[in-house]
Amino acid sequence: MSEFRNVSSNPHVRSGSTTTNIMLWVIIGLCFPAAFGVFNFGLYALVLILLSIATTVATEFIYEKLMHKPNTIGDLSAVVTGLLLGINLPSTAPFWLPIIGGIFGILVVKMLFGGLGQNFMNPALGARCFLVISFPRLMTDFVTDTYTGATPLAALKAGEEVDVMKMIEGFTGGVIGETSMIAIVIGACVLIMAGVIDLRIPGSYIVSFGLFVIIFGGRGWNPAYLSAQLAGGGLMLGAFFMATDYVTSPITNVGKYIYGIVLGLLTGIFRIFGSGAEGVSYAIIIGNLLVPLIERWTLPRAFGIPKKSRKEVKA
């Protein structure tokens, strides 16, 4: 009986998953929209993606060397950040743009706040928003030899009609990895089947956004318009690959639904009522900042601990 009284330190429930395995599955899932982006926009897009990955990995490695910290590039989180940033760039971006963005995302958003698990927002999205604010013309230049008109979302914003099927297939202008809804969904299915993500956050995000568009979009129940809004921009990419980031999303099931709904409402507000045609990046970053508050109200009470009053919680 003595072996049953042995006491060990927590955690007492362990999983076979590691950070490296999870990041590897995310990389595999992202390869589908990234590969289509290279096919759609050419080899220059591949150069931008590889340059972004090289920058994020090198920045993390150099910072940890200078700060005499353990090397963590083997967990592949820096690769995921670089890949996400790369496919969130226009295919016309100059070489130095992913370098600046990669350094900012890893150094400022991730490492200066303690590294993986301590960052308060998604590093790739933080880098993208930094680039959009700092270099708006370069980050919104989607004119290529193949696509010379406005992006589908910009056309919708102007009241024009768009080809929804081309948007679903991906043969439109936009950033490298956001154009093909099919490629993004295939990559998302890989993550779902691998158990890396579930549908709580992306499902509630997409459904709440769709309802917002139906109610406030000015078109009522218009399947073509709704489909274009869902397939256009970075909605699918953000819902499945960025909103589900373990570090910056809630851990409770109720919190995940609330988080997804908040993202859907914010994206709808930015798209329908904002001056720009897109809003996914800013919606997810604002949602990241609200995660501590969401978790504060949705974390279950431990057995035996009485429920605190609102005054006690605020205190």
Results as ranks from 00 to 15, higher is better:
Thr140Gln: 12
Leu97His: 01
Ile103Asn: 09
Lys110His: 09
Phe142Lys: 05
Val162Arg: 04
Phe104Ile: 14
Ile168Val: 15
Gly174Thr: 11
Gly102Trp: 09
Tyr147Leu: 14
Val185Glu: 13
Ala183Met: 03
Asp141Thr: 11
Pro123Ser: 12
Val190Cys: 13
Cys189Leu: 15
Met167Asp: 03
Ile106Asn: 04
Gly173Pro: 08
Phe113Met: 12
Glu160Met: 15
Cys129Tyr: 12
Gly101Phe: 05
Leu131Asp: 08
Phe120Pro: 02
Val162Pro: 01
Gln118Thr: 09
Gly149Gln: 13
Ala155Val: 01
Ala194Asn: 11
Lys110Pro: 03
Ala188Ile: 01
Ile184Leu: 03
Ser134Pro: 06
Met165Asn: 08
Met121Ala: 15
Lys157Val: 08
Leu191Tyr: 13
Glu161His: 12
Gly101Asp: 00
Leu107Asp: 07
Asp145Phe: 05
Ile197Trp: 08
Val164Thr: 07
Leu156Glu: 04
Glu169Asp: 04
Gly149Asp: 13
Val132Gly: 00
Glu178Lys: 10
Val132Asn: 03
Cys189Val: 14
Gly149Thr: 13
Val143Arg: 12
Ile103Pro: 06
Pro98Gly: 07
Met181Gly: 15
Met121Cys: 10
Asp163Arg: 10
Ile192Leu: 14
Phe130Ala: 10
Leu153Ala: 04
Val185Ile: 15
Gly177Leu: 10
Glu178Pro: 09
Gln118Ala: 14
Val190His: 11
Val109Asp: 06
Gly173Ile: 08
Asp198Pro: 10
Lys110Leu: 03
Ala188Cys: 11
Leu131Asn: 01
Val185Lys: 00
Trp96Thr: 08
Ile201His: 06
Gly101Ser: 09
Arg137Lys: 12
Leu131Pro: 05
Gly117Tyr: 05
Thr172Gly: 04
Cys129Gly: 06
Pro152Gln: 14
Gly177Lys: 09
